[in-house]
Design a binder for these strands. Structure first.
Lengths: 209, 209
DNA sequence: CCATTCAGTAAACAGTCGTTTGCCGAACTT
DNA sequence: AAGTTCGGCAAACGACTGTTTACTGAATGG
């Protein structure tokens, strides 16, 4: 890649980072072009060399945020193991992901039901593919031998919902203004583990719909 | 109440309604004072006779939104009945609530992780009290005879999370721009019923943490 | 080495914004 | 009936907004 493209990518990165940083305390809909470029150290007009819209920047952030999410989920599903270990590992992975990708997670939580339709739909679609992936992984497990497609999907969605709300709760507990309360973080993780245990219990006794 | 207060309340109502209406397509953080007063048919300065801030209007909307929610949950919990009927009734109540209070539900979904901290905390606190209420109701049921306080709370939170995400999904499916797809609405409700059945199955076989 | 491409700039456009001010007049109080 | 309270208004303030324009100068390709 020429030095040309490299510098352009660098500016693009600066814009994305600036947006991500500003979105820590506001939503996409209230973000301003000038605000972003100021934070990125560029002139307002430079923005339009990279994105037509702020919504476009938002969509770019969605794609970026979900790549790491998919990597994460595969890390959990790939390894086999007993139900208990799998639960512990899943919660650990969620916790680590929130810790290491806080701005991205916050962005997703904030814009999932936010005011910009394109972004909302992009997140929802990706979360759906996400559930499909979990469902496919569940189908391979022997314990779901005679589960219908529909029931598997339902279970996968339940897992994804639980993961999402756990991540959001962990995020809130970690925010600087709440002191990053570590006890609260552990309580949330513990609750998630219990909930997963309860679900896997229901799963073992499921007789089909 | 004097005609004085009555007219003031009417203006306040107009402001709240205008805000709620505008928040259908944007978030609180991007709402403007002038925008709201324009929609409400008042002068910009009039706003400050009722609220110091837009955040204050937001908090008022939170309180308003949650009153009807509490009424709703009591309607479900109050009546007894078999597990299956209870599940069906719970999902019906959620569905009806989303149908009849769409703007409020949308507001809650949008601002729960939104950019205005005061509003976010108000919603979270109320959702917490909400889970406590569900937990208390669960404690009265014979099937949770020897459940620890912690396990009950965990279960209550699972129910509340499921309710919230189901409501949000129903909302999205009903939005005008997605055609109000009735099949999608029914699919979401059916999934929620299955998930509740799975949880109640896990509940029956729970042996404590 | 010369021509071209193109990311980034400064300046200007016409708006909108939040908030304060002083004032009006109808509803209250006494 | 006189005086007070107070919700609502028009107007003005400076600050900030998104977007377009014409331009600069370094990397690119022949």
């Amino acid at each position: 890649m020429g030095a040309r493209q490299a510098q352009k990518q660098q500016s693009r990165r600066a814009l994305l980072d600036a947006g991500l940083h500003l979105l820590a305390e506001q939503n996409l809909a209230s973000l301003g072009v000038r605000e972003v470029t100021r934070e990125a150290g560029l002139s307002p007009a430079a923005f339009y060399r990279h994105f037509p819209d702020l919504a476009a920047l938002g969509v770019a952030l969605v794609e970026e945020s979900l790549v790491s999410l998919h990597v994460m989920i595969r890390a959990v599903l790939a390894e086999a193991g007993g139900a208990e270990e799998l639960i512990d590992r899943a919660v650990d992975v969620i916790e680590r992901h929130v810790r290491e990708h806080r701005p991205h997670v916050r962005f997703l939580a904030r814009e999932r039901h936010g005011g910009v339709r394109l972004v909302r739909e992009a997140i929802d679609a990706e979360l759906g593919r996400f559930a499909a992936e979990v469902g496919a992984a569940l189908a391979l497990q022997p314990s779901s031998r005679d589960w219908s497609e529909r029931d598997l999907r339902m279970l996968a969605e339940l897992y994804v919902d639980l993961m999402v709300s756990t991540a959001a709760a962990l995020l809130e507990a970690r925010e600087a203004d709440s002191g990053g309360d570590p006890a609260r973080v552990e309580r949330i993780a513990a609750t998630a583990r219990l909930q997963l245990r309860l679900i896997s219990l229901g799963r073992r006794h499921w007789t089909g719909s």
